[in-house]
């Protein structure tokens, strides 16, 4: 391997690492606030990317029907609750968000020539379809068992992942797809050519990380989420609704997932089940940070990205084995810093 190849691989590693970092941040956030180990994070990557592909192909993305279906179900549940609680005033808002919103999306996708829109508008449409599935998922699946042990929540997460992969196959088919790059520009940086897409990915990730940081430091909702992460009961006593915190967290996780999918779709071919492996690499990174530290998780993500890039050069057949076996020394290290016997939550 010469210096040139090393630089190329490094560039690959950093690009992927930036995506893993985003996903790792989302996983740490979801775990901290809701105790859910969010295995379906990766499905949002596939759903985001492939929904964009369908929009660009001029088709109605099948995911919008899932959104409508989940919305109807959530509306049915919440309307019943609102009526029983004697708050008919909430009905308009519930029906508006759960039912009218997806219907409007369907109408827009049918009537507007979205296929010919600029890419940025298409991306916004894709996000508008996929991201609301996050809070809906929290409402339908996790909220009824929010107090369950971590283990039960984890099994549910795996079940949701499995169902979403099946639905993904149904929606998008078994074929993989790519989207056109955001820009065709290439920059010469010393001895290497850096593609415009790489810069898009890295810069977008950084912008998103900074934006999240600002959100958590500066806004009331951000602070509410941090409070919930530190002490669930205490936050609740201070009037922070755990359901709201959950939905907000899942909204952010879905946004990060779908955006990651949109960002890497021009670089990697995305299949209906690609997201899972990408999400799991985010997990390996998050575990480096002990599912608790954001900076360590981000560092872990870069490590995973670079390890993946270089092992694909040296031992491409064993690339996945090497990346997932990284978890073992990490667990060993965490285990050696062991502590007293404690009760599981």
């Amino acid at each position: 391997m010469d210096f040139q190849i090393a630089l190329l691989l490094g560039q690959d590693g950093i690009t992927n690492g930036a995506i893993y970092a985003l996903l790792a941040l989302a996983l740490v956030l979801v775990f901290a606030v809701t105790r859910v180990i969010f295995i379906p994070q990766g499905e949002f990557v596939s759903y985001g990317a492939l929904t964009l592909v369908m929009i660009q192909a001029g088709a109605i993305p099948a995911t919008v029907w899932l959104l409508l279906g989940a919305g109807l179900l959530a509306a049915a549940l919440d309307v019943r609750l609102a009526l029983r609680a004697g708050q008919p005033g909430r009905l308009v808002r519930l029906v508006g968000w759960y039912v009218a919103y997806p219907l409007v999306l369907v109408a827009l996708l049918y009537t507007l020539p979205v296929k010919d829109f600029p890419m940025i508008a298409q991306i916004l449409f894709a996000l508008a379809v996929v991201v609301p599935m996050g809070p809906l998922m929290y409402r339908l699946i996790y909220q009824p068992i929010a107090a369950a042990p971590v283990l039960v929540l984890l099994i549910v997460s795996v079940a949701v992942h499995v169902a979403m992969v099946g639905l993904g196959l149904l929606f998008f088919g078994a074929e993989g797809s790519r989207t056109p790059p955001f820009s065709d520009a290439r920059f010469e940086m010393g001895p290497v050519m850096v593609s415009g897409q790489t810069i898009w990915v890295v810069v977008s990730s950084l912008v998103l990380i900074v934006a999240l940081y600002q959100f958590f430091e500066r806004t009331l909702y951000g602070k509410a989420l941090r409070a919930t992460a530190i002490n669930r009961v205490g936050a609740r006593l201070m009037g922070i609704s755990p359901a709201l915190a959950g939905r907000l967290t899942f909204f952010l996780a879905a946004l990060i997932g779908a955006l990651s999918g949109v960002l890497i779709a021009p670089i990697t071919t995305i299949y209906y089940d690609t997201g899972f492996l990408i999400g799991l690499k985010g997990f390996v990174a998050a575990i480096v940070g002990g599912l608790g530290s954001y900076p360590l998780a981000a560092a872990g993500a870069l490590l995973v990205g670079l390890l993946e890039a270089f092992s694909s050069f040296w031992a491409s057949a064993h690339k996945e084995v090497i990346v997932f076996t990284l978890i073992i020394p990490v667990l060993l290290w965490r285990s050696l810093r062991g502590r007293h016997v404690e009760e599981e939550e």
Binding site: I37, V150, L280, I287, E320, I327, L331
Partner: peptide, 16 residues
């Protein structure tokens, strides 16, 4: 380690 590392570890090693 606390209980959820085992399943995560098994996912990773199951794949490997």
């Amino acid at each position: 380690l606390s209980g959820h590392y085992l399943p995560l570890g098994t996912i990773a090693w199951g794949i490997s």
